[in-house]
């Protein structure tokens, strides 16, 4: 049976997930539009799993080029891709993995003026950035549009993830009023696999309407092999999601 006949995946590509997500859930995934911000360590894992799952439209944004120091963790990029734009390298792999998806790549920078364009016509945003200032821009854009923001970050053997549902949960700024100082984070590649997979799982759950969204800040401690949930709650005076948020978009 060819790809076309398998579009609904009952006998093919999606046949192992449809029993869990349902034909309806799979269709919701196919109709979804998703922004993945970053094609690095987290973005590689997230983009591969979301493409494989059959997300209908993925916009992948990253302004960097592949460097040899990326190769211990950024599994979308291989030795032959060094010096290529990460988006071009990602496009080759993602479309080879699943030619059924619609993939839009952009090598632009996510900043104050571009964030609303990148986030303007998607159903959700996945955080695969390597810095907090850009994460805060994405968080604010998600709050303004009242769309979910799937946060993840990694360092060494540690990582964290949170599913932010504007108006219902704490936003990124409620949890972290200030980001840690910029640094070149040491990182074990597999940590990106753990956290990126959690983020991708949360996206698939949300889109297909399965399960309950991650309601805590999840902290992964790879050194001890333990995962913990940390209670988080909204800050009523949050500058990003509170009633006095800049732009009056608070929820």
């Amino acid at each position: 049976m060819g790809e076309k006949e398998n579009r609904n995946g009952l006998n093919g590509r999606y046949s192992r997930q449809i029993p869990i997500l349902g034909v309806e859930g799979q269709e919701k995934i196919r109709q979804a539009r998703v922004l993945i911000a970053g094609a690095g360590g987290l973005g590689s894992v997230i983009a591969l799993y979301l493409a494989a799952a059959g997300i209908g439209f993925i916009r992948l944004v990253d302004h960097d080029r592949v460097d040899s120091s990326n190769l211990n963790r950024q599994i979308l990029h291989w030795s032959g891709d060094i010096n290529q734009p990460k988006t071009a390298s990602a496009e080759k792999k993602l479309l080879a993995l699943n030619p059924q998806i619609s993939l839009e790549i952009d090598s632009g920078t996510i900043d104050e003026s571009s964030v609303s364009v990148f986030a303007g016509d998607v159903d959700l945003i996945v955080d695969a950035m390597d810095n907090f200032p850009t994460r805060y821009l994405l968080n604010r854009a998600a709050v303004a549009r009242r769309i979910p923001f799937f946060h993840g970050a990694v360092r060494g053997f540690y990582g964290q993830a949170a599913t932010i549902l504007p108006g219902r949960t704490a936003c990124l700024r409620c949890i972290f009023p200030e980001g840690p100082p910029a640094e070149t984070s040491p990182i074990v590649g597999a940590t990106c696999g753990v956290i990126g997979s959690i983020q991708a799982t949360e996206v698939i759950k949300y889109l297909s309407g399965k399960g309950t969204p991650l309601g805590k800040l999840l902290f992964w401690d790879g050194l001890h092999g333990e995962m913990d949930g940390i209670d988080i709650s909204r800050n009523p005076s949050c500058i990003d999601c509170g009633p006095f948020a800049v732009g009056g978009e608070g929820t």
Binding site: A128, N131, R155, Y158, G179, C192
Partner: peptide
């Protein structure tokens, strides 16, 4: 009381 250093890398 929870004490933790957030990760920032991606």
């Amino acid at each position: 009381i929870a004490l933790f250093p957030p990760a920032a890398g991606g």
